[in-house]
Structure formats: C-alpha cells, structure tokens
Design a protein around this nucleic acid. Structure first.
Length: 451
RNA sequence: GCAGAGGUGGCCCAGCCUGGUUACGGCGAGAGGUUGCUAACCUCUUGGGGGAAACCCCACGGGAGUUCAAAUCUCCCCCUCUGCGCCA
C-alpha cells in the first residue's frame, strides 16, 4: 500500500500518477480516502483529549482516596467520559476499516518509464532473443503429445480432482523436477538462498502480499480454518518478514522459493483441460529480493536477466516486453513479462513476470531497515520474478523440442538432471494402457470430455 | 490431541497473587561529554500514532469484557517450551 504520509503531504502528485491508469474508480477511492483521513484525524484528536482528561481525573481520584477524602464528585465527572470516548471509538474504528480498505485497493505509483497504453496489446517489446523455428511438420498440441507418449493423464485427474488438474507420469514428471533443479542451481550460483516455504498462510499474513480481490478469485481457502493455499512462493517469502527490521548489512537478501502453487483461476477463460498452460496447481521457482531503495533498479535488471539466461540455456526463443499502464497490476511500479515462443500458434506467450514493487509491499509488510547513517528506519524495496513455472514451461518445451517423429528432445543442459535421458519417446514394446476403474465411484461422471 | 509452564521495549528479565503517579533492572546499538588511547566512566536517545509546536494519546502475544482507572481481574483466540499420545 501507499504511504499515508506521502498522500497527506503530496496529494496532487499521487493523484496525477494514479490518473495515468485511466481508471475513475481508483480516483474516487483516492478522494474518499483523503476526506475520510481528515475526519479520522479530527476524531482522533478529540478522543486523545478526552482520554487525557480521563487519565488526569483517574489520578486525582487515586490521590484524593489516599488522603482519605470522599471522591463522589470526581467519580461522577469521570463516569461521563468513557461513554463519549466509546461513541467516538465506534466511528474511528469504522473510518479505520474503510481507510485501510481503500488504501489496500489503491494501486502502487507507476514508474515514469511505464509506457502509456490501454491494454496488453500496447506493451512495448524491449528485447527479443533467438530465432523462432519454422517446423516442417504440424506441431502437435503439447497436452495431446504428452498423452500419446504416456507421460500425462488428464482424464483421470479431471475425474478425481476436477478440471484444471493433471497427472505427470514418468519422464515428464522427471522433466518437471529437472527444470526446477536447473533453475535452482542457476540461482544458487548467483547467491540466492533456496527456500521451501509453507504452502498455507494465515489470512492476516496473506493480506500483506496480495491485492484483496485475489482472495475471491485466486486463493483456495481451507475450510474451517483461517488459512489459504499459497498461489506462489512469493507470498510466504515476503510474509516471513512481516514486521521485520533488517540491519543495513543484511541487505540485500535474495531468495529462491520453490513450491507448488495453487490457483482457482475464477473468471479466467480457457482453463486448460488437456494441457498445462492454465491449471489449478503447478510448481514454480520464484526469485524474491529485499533491498535498499537505491538498489532496486539494479536488482530489477538482475532478476530479469536471470530468467532470460535460463531461457537461453534451454534454447527457447523469447521476447521481453515492458508492461504498459493499462496492463499493470496493483502491486508493481514497473513490470516486464518474458514471453516464450509457441511454434504451434506462431506467437509469444507469457512465461515469466518480473516486478519491481518499490516500497508498496514493504508498507503492508511493515518491513524496514535501519539506516546506519541516520539511525532511522526506512522501508525496504521488494522485487520478484518467476525463474520457472514448470507447467507453463512444459508446454513451451514440448512445442519447441518436438520432432517430426513425435518425440520430445531434452535440452542438453537438462541431461544431467534427467539421468542422461536425451529424449522422451514412446517405449517401443509397450502400448500405453489407460488406467481404468472396475467400478464407477462417480456415477454419471465417467468423463466430462466429449470431443 | 491431553496436561503443565510461559509470551513484557532490538535482546534478556522484574512487576501480575493484593488494579492506581513515570513498566524495574541488565545487555546491545546510536548521539554527545570527559580523558595523554579504539579502554574505562558520565549524560541522553533507542515501539506506534496525532500535532507547526508545546504536548497528548496508544502499546506488556491478539481480541472482547469489568472499572473512574487494567501488564495486573474475567472470557475467547493465537503462538512457544516441557512431558505424554499420535505420526511420514
């Protein structure tokens, strides 16, 4: 969230930055916040005064009692005060709830370098690498090929878990892990600390890391408990430092979080029923950095480069685009997406998302560092970038490394993580047998796929 | 899951039974002072908020309650430690 002090001191500057997003709702929220904040400060002053008075009288009562004199008059005077204080407190609490609600929804200030644009079609390409291949054969859909090779099972996953789930089998499961290992090793070499975070977070901690709408649209809630399944390791990595003050020497802190990620994907079209592109559960290695404000532009470039180097190591053609004003989310002040080439569709699609969040997350987290020179606490900056989201990447790999024989070539850099396996192909002697069930535990739901 | 003991400032700890001016003391850190030394010593600062300031308010794991007044009494919740139980 934004610093309320900044909003009080420079409302015009903040408002004009927010207006770049071309969203009247945001400006309405902002104006309401300004007005309610004034009311809050007035009431708070008034109550502080009443409390002060009450405290004084209480002390007088104590004094007079000690002297053995009657305190009836003072008691009468004192008794009137708590009621008025309570009345004001109700309104103050209302205002605080509303103001926090508003503050949590008002997005981050945009970096001046963010280009103006209405939506994702106006993002600005910043870099392209590699030559998109022109296969001489028709590229098979990644899910279809995985199924044919017997390394993925979608039907049974859909039956027992629901649409948007899948089983990875044999070499493809191994490939998923190999990708994670490659990503992890590259990051460890760059000084990142590997972290396996908790997969559940309590709401209070979670609110510090995401926009509120995500609770409805993205996160799975655990029934009967105040916990949510994480949507990315970014969240527990950040929440770990809730209310934390770093010493200046501790910064920067660079983490490589590895976890399964769970997303409801409500309202998103095209949930992928026979593939890995948009699913409810996937594995991801995430980069997360805490640093001093002056250093964040440097780390922003560094974590972007890490992901680009991973794609280069895997020989996947990609392009990096600078996200425009209309396509920016709530949290980031500047963002790049890195997009991999799809030979099947002949276009780039999103693989990674690299954000500089400035001090926006740090404000919610209340994550600061002690400036050694001034001995004052300042908010840190946070940055994050996908190193690899395996499922999304599996699609990319299966398409780009597909041969005309219908096998999948394993990129050389992954051989050592694949027990030296160089391709994924159909075992010659073995036909792939689908798993079948003798009984029908889910009557009437034999298959929800009708093609 | 059961039982017991706990949670107090950046860290350690007293206060709680018996409610009452300013939450005791130590350590660490920062600023200043003193001194033939970077040692020792002395003073101040070291949670959050409001206010131009003087100053005021809040904060003893979180929340609610009782009271003129709550670290202290009551209730609910969270977490830690020890023992038992269960468990990959």
């Amino acid at each position: 969230m934004l610093d309320i002090h900044l909003i009080r001191e420079k409302p015009d500057v903040v408002r004009s930055n927010l207006s770049r997003r071309q969203d009247d709702q945001i400006l309405e929220w902002f104006d309401e916040l300004i007005q309610k904040d004034v009311e809050w400060r007035q009431l708070k002053s008034e109550n502080d005064f009443l409390r002060s008075k009450r405290n004084t009288i209480s002390q007088q009562i104590n004094q007079v009692k000690k002297e053995g004199k009657p305190v009836d008059d003072l008691l009468k005077e004192a008794k009137a005060l708590p009621e008025k204080i309570k009345q004001n407190d109700v309104r103050i609490a209302e205002l605080e709830t509303r103001n926090r609600w508003l503050l949590l929804r008002i997005p981050n200030l945009l970096d001046p370098a963010v280009p103006y644009g209405k939506d994702s079609s106006e993002n600005v390409p910043a870099k392209t690498w590699g030559k998109p291949p022109k296969p001489s054969f028709e590229v098979i859909h990644h899910g279809e090929l995985a199924k044919r090779l017997g390394v993925a099972d979608f039907e049974n996953a859909v039956s027992v878990a629901g649409s948007g789930f899948f089983y990875l089998l044999g070499d493809l499961a191994l490939l998923d892990m190999a990708l994670q290992r490659l990503a992890i090793d590259m990051l460890i070499k760059k000084g990142f600390v590997l972290v396996q975070p908790p997969y559940l977070l309590k709401r209070e901690a979670y609110e510090t890391m995401v926009s509120l709408s995500d609770f409805e649209e993205v996160m799975y809630k655990i029934e009967g408990s105040d916990q949510y399944l994480i949507a990315t390791a970014e969240h527990p990595l950040g929440a770990r430092f809730l209310n934390h003050t770093f010493s200046e020497d501790d910064l920067p802190q660079k983490f490589a979080g590895v976890s399964a990620c769970f997303r409801k994907e409500i309202g998103k079209h095209g949930l992928d029923e026979r593939g890995f592109f948009r699913v409810h559960q996937f594995n991801k290695v995430e980069q997360f950095v805490f640093c001093k404000p002056a250093d964040s532009p440097v780390f922003f470039e560094a974590i972007r480069k890490n992901s680009e180097e991973l794609l280069e190591a895997l020989e996947i053609p990609y392009r990096t685009v600078l996200i425009c004003t209309g396509d920016m989310g709530v949290i980031a002040s500047k963002k790049f997406d890195i997009e991999g080439w799809s030979p099947r569709e002949g276009k780039y699609f999103e693989l990674m998302s690299c954000s500089n969040c400035g001090d926006y997350q740090a404000h919610r987290l209340n994550a600061k560092f002690l400036n050694a020179k001034t001995n004052e606490k300042e908010f840190v900056h946070t940055l994050n970038n996908t190193m690899i989201a395996t499922t999304r990447f599996l699609r990319c790999l299966i398409e780009n490394c597909q041969t005309k024989d219908g096998t999948i070539r394993v990129p050389k850099v992954l051989w050592k993580y694949m027990n030296n396996k160089k391709e994924i192909s159909l075992p010659k002697a073995k036909a792939v047998k689908p798993v079948s069930r003798a009984s029908k535990p889910f009557a009437g739901k034999k298959s929800i796929h009708k093609r």
